[in-house]
Design a protein around this nucleic acid. Sequence first.
RNA 1: GCGAGCGUAGCCAAGUGGUUAAGGCAGCGGAUUGUGGUUCCGCCACUCGGGGGUUCGAAUCCCCUCGUUCGCCCCA
Length: 429
Amino acid sequence: MTAIDAIKGTRDILPEEVGYWQWIESVAREILNRAAYQEIRTPIFEQTDLFARGIGEATDVVGKEMYTFIDKGDRSVTLRPEGTAGVVRAYIENGLHVKGSLQRLWYVGPMFRYENVQAGRQRQFHQLGCEVLGSADPRADVEVIALAIDILTTLGLKDLRLDLNSVGTPDDRQQYREALVNYLTPYKEDLDPDSKIRLTRNPMRILDSKNPETRKIVQDAPKIWDHLAPESRKRFEQVQQQLTDLGIGFTLNPCLVRGLDYYTHTAFEIVAETGLGAQNAVGGGGRYDGLVTELGGPETPAVGWAMGLERLLLLLQQLASAPAIDLDFYVVSRGGKAEPQALQLAQKLRKQGFAVDLDLTASAFGKQFKRADRSGAAACLILGDDEAVNGTVQLKWLGSGEQESMPQANLLEKAAVLRDRIQNLNSKR
RNA sequence: GCGAGCGUAGCCAAGUGGUUAAGGCAGCGGAUUGUGGUUCCGCCACUCGGGGGUUCGAAUCCCCUCGUUCGCCCCA
Protein backbone atom coordinates (compact mmCIF):
# COMPACT_ATOMS: atom_id res chain seq x y z
CA MET A 1 0.00 0.00 0.00
CA THR A 2 1.30 3.42 -0.85
CA ALA A 3 0.93 5.94 1.93
CA ILE A 4 -1.42 8.85 1.46
CA ASP A 5 -0.03 12.32 2.01
CA ALA A 6 -1.78 15.45 3.20
CA ILE A 7 -3.22 17.64 0.45
CA LYS A 8 -0.91 20.27 -1.02
CA GLY A 9 -1.02 23.46 1.00
CA THR A 10 -2.26 21.75 4.14
CA ARG A 11 -0.19 20.50 7.01
CA ASP A 12 -0.41 18.79 10.34
CA ILE A 13 0.04 20.73 13.53
CA LEU A 14 2.00 18.24 15.57
CA PRO A 15 2.09 17.99 19.37
CA GLU A 16 5.45 19.72 19.61
CA GLU A 17 3.96 22.78 17.94
CA VAL A 18 0.47 22.77 19.34
CA GLY A 19 1.61 24.57 22.48
CA TYR A 20 2.13 27.72 20.41
CA TRP A 21 -1.38 27.48 19.02
CA GLN A 22 -2.92 27.07 22.44
CA TRP A 23 -0.86 29.96 23.68
CA ILE A 24 -1.93 32.28 20.87
CA GLU A 25 -5.56 31.31 21.30
CA SER A 26 -5.56 31.73 25.05
CA VAL A 27 -3.92 35.16 24.89
CA ALA A 28 -6.39 36.29 22.23
CA ARG A 29 -9.36 34.85 24.08
CA GLU A 30 -8.42 36.58 27.29
CA ILE A 31 -7.74 39.98 25.75
CA LEU A 32 -10.87 39.94 23.61
CA ASN A 33 -13.14 38.62 26.35
CA ARG A 34 -11.86 41.33 28.66
CA ALA A 35 -12.96 43.91 26.09
CA ALA A 36 -16.46 42.39 25.99
CA TYR A 37 -15.99 40.65 22.65
CA GLN A 38 -17.83 37.36 22.30
CA GLU A 39 -16.67 34.38 20.34
CA ILE A 40 -18.72 33.32 17.35
CA ARG A 41 -18.33 30.08 15.41
CA THR A 42 -19.72 29.98 11.92
CA PRO A 43 -19.66 27.16 9.35
CA ILE A 44 -16.50 26.42 7.45
CA PHE A 45 -18.40 26.31 4.18
CA GLU A 46 -21.13 28.56 2.90
CA GLN A 47 -23.09 29.23 -0.25
CA THR A 48 -20.72 30.43 -2.93
CA ASP A 49 -22.84 33.52 -3.42
CA LEU A 50 -22.06 34.77 0.05
CA PHE A 51 -18.41 35.26 -0.82
CA ALA A 52 -19.05 36.33 -4.39
CA ARG A 53 -21.29 39.12 -3.16
CA GLY A 54 -19.52 39.91 0.07
CA ILE A 55 -15.95 39.99 -1.08
CA GLY A 56 -16.54 41.08 -4.65
CA GLU A 57 -16.57 39.16 -7.92
CA ALA A 58 -13.66 41.16 -9.25
CA THR A 59 -11.24 40.34 -6.45
CA ASP A 60 -8.59 37.66 -6.78
CA VAL A 61 -9.88 35.93 -3.68
CA VAL A 62 -13.19 35.27 -5.40
CA GLY A 63 -11.98 35.15 -8.97
CA LYS A 64 -9.25 32.57 -8.68
CA GLU A 65 -8.67 31.49 -5.12
CA MET A 66 -11.89 29.94 -3.91
CA TYR A 67 -12.33 26.29 -3.06
CA THR A 68 -15.71 25.84 -4.69
CA PHE A 69 -17.54 22.62 -5.44
CA ILE A 70 -21.01 21.31 -6.18
CA ASP A 71 -22.46 19.15 -3.41
CA LYS A 72 -24.80 16.19 -3.85
CA GLY A 73 -27.80 18.48 -3.68
CA ASP A 74 -26.46 20.38 -6.67
CA ARG A 75 -25.62 23.45 -4.59
CA SER A 76 -22.51 25.49 -5.19
CA VAL A 77 -20.66 25.67 -1.90
CA THR A 78 -17.33 27.25 -1.02
CA LEU A 79 -14.86 26.68 1.78
CA ARG A 80 -14.60 30.05 3.44
CA PRO A 81 -11.64 32.11 2.20
CA GLU A 82 -11.98 34.61 5.08
CA GLY A 83 -14.08 35.10 8.16
CA THR A 84 -15.95 38.35 7.86
CA ALA A 85 -18.56 37.32 5.29
CA GLY A 86 -19.71 34.37 7.39
CA VAL A 87 -19.87 36.46 10.55
CA VAL A 88 -21.95 39.10 8.81
CA ARG A 89 -24.24 36.44 7.35
CA ALA A 90 -24.75 35.01 10.84
CA TYR A 91 -25.33 38.48 12.22
CA ILE A 92 -28.11 39.13 9.73
CA GLU A 93 -29.62 35.66 9.75
CA ASN A 94 -29.82 35.40 13.53
CA GLY A 95 -31.07 38.93 13.99
CA LEU A 96 -28.14 39.91 16.18
CA HIS A 97 -28.74 43.54 15.24
CA VAL A 98 -32.03 43.54 17.13
CA LYS A 99 -30.58 41.73 20.14
CA GLY A 100 -28.41 44.68 20.92
CA SER A 101 -27.45 47.84 19.22
CA LEU A 102 -23.88 46.74 18.95
CA GLN A 103 -22.14 43.41 18.57
CA ARG A 104 -18.52 42.80 19.38
CA LEU A 105 -17.49 39.44 17.99
CA TRP A 106 -14.34 37.41 17.47
CA TYR A 107 -13.55 34.14 15.79
CA VAL A 108 -10.69 31.80 15.08
CA GLY A 109 -10.46 28.94 12.64
CA PRO A 110 -9.32 27.56 9.32
CA MET A 111 -9.73 29.41 6.04
CA PHE A 112 -9.13 28.09 2.54
CA ARG A 113 -7.70 29.65 -0.57
CA TYR A 114 -6.60 27.85 -3.68
CA GLU A 115 -3.24 29.53 -4.13
CA ASN A 116 0.28 28.45 -4.73
CA VAL A 117 2.15 27.80 -1.56
CA GLN A 118 5.03 29.91 -0.31
CA ALA A 119 6.49 31.03 2.99
CA GLY A 120 3.63 32.01 5.29
CA ARG A 121 0.99 31.03 2.79
CA GLN A 122 -0.93 27.79 2.61
CA ARG A 123 -4.20 26.60 1.13
CA GLN A 124 -5.65 25.83 4.51
CA PHE A 125 -4.52 28.46 6.96
CA HIS A 126 -5.88 29.92 10.15
CA GLN A 127 -7.14 33.33 11.01
CA LEU A 128 -8.08 35.04 14.20
CA GLY A 129 -10.41 37.92 13.67
CA CYS A 130 -12.65 40.37 15.40
CA GLU A 131 -15.52 42.53 14.24
CA VAL A 132 -17.52 45.37 15.73
CA LEU A 133 -20.92 45.61 14.08
CA GLY A 134 -23.19 48.57 14.63
CA SER A 135 -20.86 51.44 15.46
CA ALA A 136 -19.59 54.19 13.22
CA ASP A 137 -17.67 55.80 16.09
CA PRO A 138 -13.98 56.26 15.27
CA ARG A 139 -13.29 54.89 18.73
CA ALA A 140 -14.47 51.51 17.45
CA ASP A 141 -11.74 51.59 14.78
CA VAL A 142 -9.16 52.52 17.36
CA GLU A 143 -10.36 49.99 19.93
CA VAL A 144 -10.10 47.21 17.42
CA ILE A 145 -6.60 48.22 16.40
CA ALA A 146 -5.53 48.58 20.03
CA LEU A 147 -6.71 45.05 20.78
CA ALA A 148 -4.79 43.63 17.86
CA ILE A 149 -1.67 45.37 19.11
CA ASP A 150 -2.34 44.14 22.66
CA ILE A 151 -2.51 40.56 21.49
CA LEU A 152 0.69 40.82 19.50
CA THR A 153 2.68 42.55 22.21
CA THR A 154 1.40 40.19 24.90
CA LEU A 155 2.75 37.36 22.79
CA GLY A 156 6.08 39.16 22.89
CA LEU A 157 6.25 40.17 19.26
CA LYS A 158 8.41 43.16 18.44
CA ASP A 159 9.48 44.95 15.30
CA LEU A 160 5.93 45.24 14.05
CA ARG A 161 4.79 48.22 12.10
CA LEU A 162 1.24 49.52 11.98
CA ASP A 163 0.40 51.00 8.59
CA LEU A 164 -2.60 53.25 8.45
CA ASN A 165 -4.64 54.82 5.70
CA SER A 166 -8.14 55.98 4.93
CA VAL A 167 -9.87 54.92 1.76
CA GLY A 168 -12.77 57.28 2.46
CA THR A 169 -16.31 56.77 1.32
CA PRO A 170 -17.27 55.35 -2.08
CA ASP A 171 -17.81 58.95 -3.22
CA ASP A 172 -14.37 60.01 -2.04
CA ARG A 173 -12.86 57.11 -3.86
CA GLN A 174 -14.70 57.88 -7.05
CA GLN A 175 -13.17 61.34 -7.08
CA TYR A 176 -9.75 60.10 -6.19
CA ARG A 177 -9.86 57.40 -8.83
CA GLU A 178 -10.32 60.05 -11.51
CA ALA A 179 -7.43 62.11 -10.22
CA LEU A 180 -5.24 59.03 -10.06
CA VAL A 181 -6.07 57.90 -13.57
CA ASN A 182 -5.40 61.41 -14.86
CA TYR A 183 -2.01 61.35 -13.26
CA LEU A 184 -1.08 57.83 -14.34
CA THR A 185 -2.31 57.84 -17.92
CA PRO A 186 0.70 59.75 -19.32
CA TYR A 187 2.96 57.09 -17.75
CA LYS A 188 0.91 54.24 -19.09
CA GLU A 189 3.70 52.77 -21.18
CA ASP A 190 6.13 52.76 -18.26
CA LEU A 191 3.86 50.77 -15.96
CA ASP A 192 4.36 47.06 -15.44
CA PRO A 193 1.93 44.85 -17.41
CA ASP A 194 -0.29 44.09 -14.43
CA SER A 195 -0.62 47.72 -13.51
CA LYS A 196 -1.44 48.63 -17.10
CA ILE A 197 -4.49 46.40 -16.88
CA ARG A 198 -5.40 47.82 -13.50
CA LEU A 199 -5.43 51.32 -14.89
CA THR A 200 -8.88 50.69 -16.27
CA ARG A 201 -10.05 47.92 -13.94
CA ASN A 202 -8.95 49.01 -10.50
CA PRO A 203 -6.45 51.88 -10.59
CA MET A 204 -6.03 52.08 -6.81
CA ARG A 205 -4.40 48.66 -6.82
CA ILE A 206 -1.52 50.17 -8.76
CA LEU A 207 -0.56 51.99 -5.56
CA ASP A 208 0.64 48.84 -3.82
CA SER A 209 2.51 47.37 -6.77
CA LYS A 210 5.89 45.88 -5.95
CA ASN A 211 7.34 46.69 -9.31
CA PRO A 212 10.20 49.21 -8.82
CA GLU A 213 9.42 51.24 -11.93
CA THR A 214 5.76 51.48 -11.05
CA ARG A 215 6.64 52.48 -7.51
CA LYS A 216 8.73 55.33 -8.74
CA ILE A 217 5.82 56.64 -10.77
CA VAL A 218 3.41 56.15 -7.89
CA GLN A 219 5.61 58.12 -5.50
CA ASP A 220 4.43 61.42 -6.87
CA ALA A 221 0.86 60.33 -7.53
CA PRO A 222 -1.92 62.34 -5.89
CA LYS A 223 -2.77 61.12 -2.40
CA ILE A 224 -6.23 60.05 -1.42
CA TRP A 225 -6.00 62.27 1.64
CA ASP A 226 -6.35 65.29 -0.59
CA HIS A 227 -9.57 63.92 -2.02
CA LEU A 228 -11.37 63.03 1.18
CA ALA A 229 -14.55 64.95 1.95
CA PRO A 230 -14.24 67.13 5.08
CA GLU A 231 -16.23 64.59 7.11
CA SER A 232 -14.00 61.71 6.04
CA ARG A 233 -10.89 63.73 6.67
CA LYS A 234 -12.03 64.69 10.14
CA ARG A 235 -12.73 61.07 10.91
CA PHE A 236 -9.29 60.02 9.74
CA GLU A 237 -7.72 62.68 11.94
CA GLN A 238 -9.70 61.52 14.94
CA VAL A 239 -8.50 57.98 14.48
CA GLN A 240 -4.91 59.16 14.29
CA GLN A 241 -5.28 61.35 17.36
CA GLN A 242 -6.85 58.59 19.42
CA LEU A 243 -4.18 56.10 18.45
CA THR A 244 -1.56 58.61 19.51
CA ASP A 245 -3.37 59.19 22.80
CA LEU A 246 -3.17 55.46 23.47
CA GLY A 247 0.55 55.49 22.75
CA ILE A 248 0.15 53.39 19.63
CA GLY A 249 2.61 54.37 16.94
CA PHE A 250 1.70 54.11 13.28
CA THR A 251 2.97 54.92 9.84
CA LEU A 252 0.73 56.72 7.41
CA ASN A 253 0.80 54.81 4.18
CA PRO A 254 -1.12 56.36 1.29
CA CYS A 255 -0.47 53.26 -0.80
CA LEU A 256 -2.21 50.89 1.58
CA VAL A 257 -5.23 49.67 -0.32
CA ARG A 258 -7.18 46.72 0.95
CA GLY A 259 -7.96 44.05 -1.57
CA LEU A 260 -11.60 43.67 -0.78
CA ASP A 261 -14.32 45.90 -2.18
CA TYR A 262 -16.31 46.63 0.91
CA TYR A 263 -13.79 48.67 2.85
CA THR A 264 -14.49 52.29 3.76
CA HIS A 265 -12.51 54.87 5.74
CA THR A 266 -9.93 53.27 8.02
CA ALA A 267 -7.63 50.69 6.47
CA PHE A 268 -4.69 49.23 8.35
CA GLU A 269 -2.16 46.50 8.20
CA ILE A 270 0.29 45.13 10.71
CA VAL A 271 3.54 44.24 9.06
CA ALA A 272 6.50 42.30 10.41
CA GLU A 273 9.67 44.24 9.60
CA THR A 274 11.73 41.07 9.77
CA GLY A 275 11.19 37.38 10.22
CA LEU A 276 8.70 36.63 7.46
CA GLY A 277 9.39 36.24 3.78
CA ALA A 278 7.64 38.17 1.07
CA GLN A 279 4.30 37.63 2.77
CA ASN A 280 5.00 39.92 5.68
CA ALA A 281 1.54 41.12 6.75
CA VAL A 282 0.52 39.43 9.99
CA GLY A 283 -2.80 41.15 10.16
CA GLY A 284 -4.99 43.60 8.39
CA GLY A 285 -8.39 45.10 8.53
CA GLY A 286 -10.46 48.18 8.40
CA ARG A 287 -13.91 49.61 8.27
CA TYR A 288 -16.55 48.09 6.02
CA ASP A 289 -19.68 50.16 6.33
CA GLY A 290 -21.11 48.84 3.10
CA LEU A 291 -20.94 45.11 3.65
CA VAL A 292 -23.99 44.41 5.79
CA THR A 293 -26.39 45.97 3.32
CA GLU A 294 -24.54 44.30 0.46
CA LEU A 295 -25.41 41.00 2.10
CA GLY A 296 -29.05 41.90 2.60
CA GLY A 297 -29.00 43.31 6.12
CA PRO A 298 -29.93 46.70 7.51
CA GLU A 299 -27.49 49.54 7.08
CA THR A 300 -24.81 48.80 9.67
CA PRO A 301 -21.41 50.39 10.08
CA ALA A 302 -18.71 47.89 10.99
CA VAL A 303 -14.99 47.54 11.54
CA GLY A 304 -12.70 44.57 12.09
CA TRP A 305 -9.48 42.77 11.32
CA ALA A 306 -7.99 39.35 10.77
CA MET A 307 -4.58 37.95 11.62
CA GLY A 308 -2.86 35.03 9.95
CA LEU A 309 -1.91 32.59 12.65
CA GLU A 310 0.70 30.69 10.64
CA ARG A 311 2.56 33.95 10.16
CA LEU A 312 2.27 34.74 13.84
CA LEU A 313 3.61 31.32 14.56
CA LEU A 314 6.62 31.81 12.30
CA LEU A 315 7.48 34.92 14.29
CA LEU A 316 6.89 33.30 17.68
CA GLN A 317 9.06 30.33 16.85
CA GLN A 318 11.95 32.70 16.26
CA LEU A 319 11.46 34.22 19.69
CA ALA A 320 10.56 31.53 22.17
CA SER A 321 10.11 27.83 22.56
CA ALA A 322 6.61 26.45 22.83
CA PRO A 323 5.14 26.44 26.28
CA ALA A 324 4.84 22.83 27.42
CA ILE A 325 2.97 21.20 30.24
CA ASP A 326 5.37 20.05 32.94
CA LEU A 327 4.89 16.42 33.85
CA ASP A 328 4.55 15.77 37.58
CA PHE A 329 4.77 11.97 37.83
CA TYR A 330 5.95 9.11 35.70
CA VAL A 331 4.50 5.82 36.91
CA VAL A 332 6.60 2.71 36.52
CA SER A 333 5.15 -0.70 37.20
CA ARG A 334 5.74 -4.36 36.64
CA GLY A 335 3.87 -7.49 37.62
CA GLY A 336 0.36 -8.86 37.38
CA LYS A 337 -0.84 -7.22 40.60
CA ALA A 338 1.10 -4.01 40.29
CA GLU A 339 0.19 -3.01 36.75
CA PRO A 340 -3.58 -2.55 37.33
CA GLN A 341 -2.83 -0.75 40.60
CA ALA A 342 -0.50 1.61 38.79
CA LEU A 343 -3.30 2.59 36.46
CA GLN A 344 -5.62 3.20 39.41
CA LEU A 345 -3.02 5.30 41.17
CA ALA A 346 -2.35 7.32 38.03
CA GLN A 347 -6.04 8.03 37.62
CA LYS A 348 -6.42 9.11 41.25
CA LEU A 349 -3.49 11.50 40.94
CA ARG A 350 -4.81 12.91 37.68
CA LYS A 351 -8.14 13.60 39.35
CA GLN A 352 -6.24 15.56 41.97
CA GLY A 353 -4.81 17.70 39.21
CA PHE A 354 -1.39 16.16 38.69
CA ALA A 355 0.03 15.53 35.23
CA VAL A 356 0.82 11.83 35.22
CA ASP A 357 2.37 9.61 32.56
CA LEU A 358 1.84 5.87 33.00
CA ASP A 359 4.41 3.59 31.40
CA LEU A 360 2.41 0.97 29.51
CA THR A 361 5.26 -1.26 28.43
CA ALA A 362 5.75 -3.48 31.47
CA SER A 363 9.33 -3.83 30.29
CA ALA A 364 12.32 -4.20 32.61
CA PHE A 365 12.39 -1.58 35.35
CA GLY A 366 15.67 -0.30 34.02
CA LYS A 367 14.03 0.54 30.68
CA GLN A 368 11.09 2.16 32.36
CA PHE A 369 13.41 4.33 34.45
CA LYS A 370 15.21 5.42 31.34
CA ARG A 371 11.93 6.61 29.90
CA ALA A 372 10.94 8.21 33.20
CA ASP A 373 14.12 10.18 33.07
CA ARG A 374 13.52 11.40 29.54
CA SER A 375 9.91 12.28 30.24
CA GLY A 376 11.02 15.26 32.30
CA ALA A 377 8.73 14.28 35.17
CA ALA A 378 9.55 15.70 38.58
CA ALA A 379 9.17 12.33 40.25
CA CYS A 380 8.76 8.70 39.50
CA LEU A 381 6.30 6.37 41.20
CA ILE A 382 7.30 2.75 41.43
CA LEU A 383 4.90 -0.13 41.82
CA GLY A 384 6.15 -3.71 41.79
CA ASP A 385 4.42 -6.71 43.19
CA ASP A 386 5.99 -6.16 46.64
CA GLU A 387 4.34 -2.75 46.81
CA ALA A 388 1.12 -4.02 45.30
CA VAL A 389 0.77 -6.62 48.03
CA ASN A 390 1.48 -4.10 50.80
CA GLY A 391 -0.52 -1.28 49.23
CA THR A 392 2.58 0.90 49.19
CA VAL A 393 4.42 2.81 46.51
CA GLN A 394 7.96 4.08 46.07
CA LEU A 395 8.28 7.79 45.38
CA LYS A 396 11.54 8.71 43.72
CA TRP A 397 12.55 12.29 42.94
CA LEU A 398 14.28 12.16 39.62
CA GLY A 399 16.41 15.23 40.19
CA SER A 400 18.04 14.11 43.42
CA GLY A 401 17.53 10.36 43.31
CA GLU A 402 15.98 10.54 46.76
CA GLN A 403 13.48 7.74 47.26
CA GLU A 404 10.98 6.82 49.93
CA SER A 405 8.36 4.15 50.43
CA MET A 406 4.88 4.99 51.67
CA PRO A 407 1.35 3.64 51.66
CA GLN A 408 -0.49 4.65 48.51
CA ALA A 409 -3.16 6.31 50.63
CA ASN A 410 -0.53 8.59 52.16
CA LEU A 411 0.64 9.73 48.78
CA LEU A 412 -2.84 10.88 47.93
CA GLU A 413 -3.29 12.61 51.28
CA LYS A 414 -0.02 14.48 50.87
CA ALA A 415 -1.14 15.96 47.55
CA ALA A 416 -0.76 19.55 48.72
CA VAL A 417 2.76 18.99 50.03
CA LEU A 418 3.77 17.23 46.84
CA ARG A 419 2.36 19.98 44.72
CA ASP A 420 4.39 22.59 46.58
CA ARG A 421 7.54 20.58 46.23
CA ILE A 422 7.03 20.02 42.51
CA GLN A 423 6.28 23.69 41.96
CA ASN A 424 9.44 24.56 43.80
CA LEU A 425 11.47 22.22 41.61
CA ASN A 426 9.92 23.54 38.41
CA SER A 427 10.59 27.14 39.32
CA LYS A 428 14.27 26.37 39.77
CA ARG A 429 14.54 24.93 36.30
C1' G B 1 -1.71 30.50 -13.46
C1' C B 2 3.86 31.63 -14.05
C1' G B 3 9.46 31.31 -12.71
C1' A B 4 13.69 29.06 -10.12
C1' G B 5 15.97 25.51 -6.58
C1' C B 6 15.47 20.81 -4.11
C1' G B 7 13.44 15.38 -3.22
C1' U B 8 18.54 9.36 -0.18
C1' A B 9 15.40 5.97 6.87
C1' G B 10 11.04 9.34 11.69
C1' C B 11 14.97 13.69 11.50
C1' C B 12 19.97 15.63 9.72
C1' A B 13 22.74 13.90 5.87
C1' A B 14 27.51 11.39 2.59
C1' G B 15 27.44 9.39 -2.08
C1' U B 16 27.68 12.85 -8.84
C1' G B 17 27.61 5.94 -13.93
C1' G B 18 30.76 0.07 -11.61
C1' U B 19 30.84 -5.19 -6.60
C1' U B 20 27.06 -5.43 0.16
C1' A B 21 23.78 2.78 -0.34
C1' A B 22 28.77 6.15 4.72
C1' G B 23 27.88 8.60 9.26
C1' G B 24 25.04 11.12 13.12
C1' C B 25 20.39 11.91 16.01
C1' A B 26 15.98 9.54 17.54
C1' G B 27 13.83 4.64 18.35
C1' C B 28 14.08 -0.59 19.77
C1' G B 29 16.79 -4.89 22.11
C1' G B 30 20.93 -6.48 25.20
C1' A B 31 25.27 -5.90 28.82
C1' U B 32 21.95 -4.27 33.70
C1' U B 33 15.73 -10.69 34.92
C1' G B 34 13.39 -4.16 40.86
C1' U B 35 16.17 1.38 39.94
C1' G B 36 17.39 6.46 35.38
C1' G B 37 20.87 10.23 33.29
C1' U B 38 27.26 7.76 31.36
C1' U B 39 29.39 3.81 28.56
C1' C B 40 29.59 -0.50 25.31
C1' C B 41 27.30 -4.06 21.79
C1' G B 42 23.45 -5.25 18.36
C1' C B 43 19.02 -4.02 15.24
C1' C B 44 16.77 -0.23 12.24
C1' A B 45 16.73 1.84 3.35
C1' C B 46 16.32 -5.62 -1.36
C1' U B 47 16.68 0.63 -2.30
C1' C B 48 17.42 6.52 -3.23
C1' G B 49 9.45 10.72 -4.27
C1' G B 50 6.77 7.96 -8.53
C1' G B 51 6.74 6.34 -13.78
C1' G B 52 9.30 5.72 -18.33
C1' G B 53 13.97 5.90 -21.14
C1' U B 54 19.57 5.69 -22.16
C1' U B 55 23.34 1.97 -20.69
C1' C B 56 26.46 -4.38 -20.05
C1' G B 57 25.47 -1.52 -15.44
C1' A B 58 21.58 4.29 -12.80
C1' A B 59 20.57 7.23 -6.25
C1' U B 60 23.95 9.35 -10.05
C1' C B 61 22.41 10.92 -17.17
C1' C B 62 17.53 12.21 -20.08
C1' C B 63 12.03 12.84 -20.25
C1' C B 64 7.40 13.06 -17.75
C1' U B 65 4.87 13.36 -13.20
C1' C B 66 4.05 14.32 -8.07
C1' G B 67 5.74 16.69 -3.76
C1' U B 68 8.49 20.52 -1.42
C1' U B 69 11.04 25.32 -0.89
C1' C B 70 11.51 30.34 -2.38
C1' G B 71 9.61 34.09 -5.51
C1' C B 72 5.67 36.60 -9.04
C1' C B 73 0.37 37.61 -8.88
C1' C B 74 -2.56 38.31 -4.53
C1' C B 75 -3.35 38.16 0.40
C1' A B 76 -3.58 36.98 6.71
